[in-house]
């Protein structure tokens, strides 16, 4: 299901600039990200793709020296508006990090963390239901159902990452940001997570930063190529990988830069 028109843009950014102290990390990036699609950000290390991802849920706010300017809208609402509470925003825009970072709590408590904080469940039964649903969606239920009370840190790396995905899903976000979610995983765990991303796309708009071009080609419908803080090219994944317009994209795809 390729969505070439950008009529139902979930996230739209215009002229986004990010500075870290003296470095100009993101230079004038404008993209429109569609709902219920997987969008991949690719590019060499240090090109700003993770930084840009972290603008979308304002995680960059936690870094003192970081300054974000420009216009980022989710469903038309400017998320950098003074009226927007970044805490509320992050509940709506879930994030999965590069290294699996389950809390040092039980598997159950890891998934229940978000719903508890946001008061999504009225009672224990509802909370149980959310936990089960999230774990099922993250394809971890079968492995975890008998050990919900054992620590999440005891799971294997791939399971931990799926736990983090379950944890992010549990707050019922509309957008899921994934910052190189498979870079710390082995090929089998990677395949499981990729399968999961395919599944998630039905309910969320997924934005994934990845180093692996094969992964981008496998999971995404749209791809954005970043280079030195610039958005070089953005379009259908098929087109980017087979017939890129920009020579820099072509060099990167074919392995000449990066």
């Amino acid at each position: 299901m390729k969505d070439t028109q950008m009529t139902n843009a979930k996230i739209s950014t215009k002229g986004v600039q990010v500075h870290y102290a003296d470095t100009h990390a993101i230079k004038d990036v404008s993209v429109e990200i569609a709902d219920k699609t997987v969008t991949a950000f690719i590019g060499p290390s240090g090109c700003g793709k993770s930084t840009f991802l972290r603008c979308i849920n304002r995680m960059n706010d936690t870094i003192d020296s970081c300054r974000v300017t420009g216009d980022i809208r989710i469903e038309g609402e400017d998320i950098y508006d003074v009226k927007v509470d970044p805490v509320q925003l992050r509940a709506k825009v879930g994030m999965v990090f590069q290294k699996p970072n389950p809390f040092p709590k039980s598997i159950y408590d890891n998934v229940a963390y978000g719903p508890k904080i946001h008061g999504l469940a009225r009672n224990k039964a509802e909370l149980d239901e959310i936990v089960e649903k999230s774990l099922r969606k993250a394809a971890l239920w079968n492995e975890a159902k008998d050990r919900l009370l054992s620590p999440g840190t005891g799971l294997s790396g791939g399971q931990q990452q799926r736990l983090c995905i379950a944890r992010a899903i549990a707050t019922a976000p509309e957008i899921l940001l994934m910052d190189e979610p498979c870079s710390a995983l082995d090929p089998i765990a990677t395949a499981q997570v990729e399968e999961l991303i395919d599944e998630l796309q039905k309910s969320f708009s997924v934005v994934i930063v990845t180093h692996s071009m094969q992964q981008a080609a496998r999971v995404s419908q749209k791809t954005a190529f970043f280079h030195l803080g610039n958005l070089v090219e953005y379009g259908d994944t098929d087109k980017i990988f087979t017939n890129p317009e920009d020579p820099r994209t072509e060099s990167y795809i074919s392995g000449r830069i990066g």
Partner: peptide
Amino acid sequence: MRDGSLGLGA
């Protein structure tokens, strides 16, 4: 750990 929690809207 902190990022994980903040990322969930805590």
